[in-house]
């Protein structure tokens, strides 16, 4: 067993949190409140020393960069949300943030999430090399690679058709929309599978900590 008090505290708090799986109890409540309190204090201190001090306080009051009074004023105006009578002032910095962010990201998003993604679907429907590999080394994986591009293109088209609501989903159009739903379902299934994997990984991480760092059984 570990002799490190920090490890013992971490192990105790881990079990307090896990005890919620049995039912709500004072140990869980204690750990939950402790976590919220410590987090709030940690982030308050962290933001002061890592964001406010190096980006505003030091440059303005030590180095004399007086132009920084503008972001300081915008920051103070944001806090007026706490006072209903002058809360309208917070709309100005908010508008500044929304405008700047939208303008900054518009071109970047267009390139990486629209144009590059569209380009990726503008490929030859028949991947000659992949089919050659399939015939030379027949396997399920090579088969999947060979049909990969047509499947992606079909998924893109039918997925877009499903989200096209200006025409009733009937006949051929409705059939294609239904195929689009299947693609969406497969995507949601894959996402759910990955989510389960992530949650189990977190449990493994905690159990590994208890068995390795605390009990030193492994």
């Amino acid at each position: 067993m570990s002799t490190d008090p920090g490890v013992w505290i971490a192990a105790f708090l881990t079990m307090c949190i896990l005890s919620f799986l049995y039912r709500d109890n004072p140990f869980y409540r204690f750990a939950e409140h402790l976590f919220i309190g410590v987090s709030a204090a940690y982030w308050a201190v962290y933001y002061y020393y890592n964001i406010l001090q190096p980006n505003l306080i030091d440059p303005m009051f030590v180095q004399g960069q007086l132009l920084l009074i503008i972001p300081l004023a915008l920051g103070v105006m944001m806090l007026t949300r706490l006072f209903p009578k002058v809360g309208w002032m917070s709309r100005w910095p908010l508008a500044f943030i929304v405008g700047t962010y939208a303008g900054y990201n518009l071109i970047i998003y267009l390139q990486s999430d629209a144009l590059d993604q569209v380009t990726a679907t503008l490929v030859s429907l028949v991947q000659v090399e992949a089919w050659q590999t399939l015939f030379q080394h027949p396997s399920f994986v090579n088969f999947l690679y060979a049909i990969g591009v047509p499947v992606v293109i079909m998924g893109v088209i039918t997925g877009i058709i499903y989200f096209f609501f200006s025409k009733e989903h009937k006949g051929v159009f409705g059939g294609l929309a239904k195929i689009g739903i299947w693609f969406l379902m497969v995507a949601f299934g894959a996402s759910f599978g990955y989510t389960v994997m992530a949650r189990i990984s977190l449990l493994i991480g905690r159990v590994y900590f208890l068995l390795h760092n605390w009990l030193q059984l492994i």
Partner: peptide, 26 residues
Amino acid sequence: VTAVSAPAFYPYLNAGQLQGLLGGMK
């Protein structure tokens, strides 16, 4: 990336915008 977010990055991988992708503990 974490397993939860891995599916969202496959399109970037397929488009050649990523050189590789590690998803979760696996």
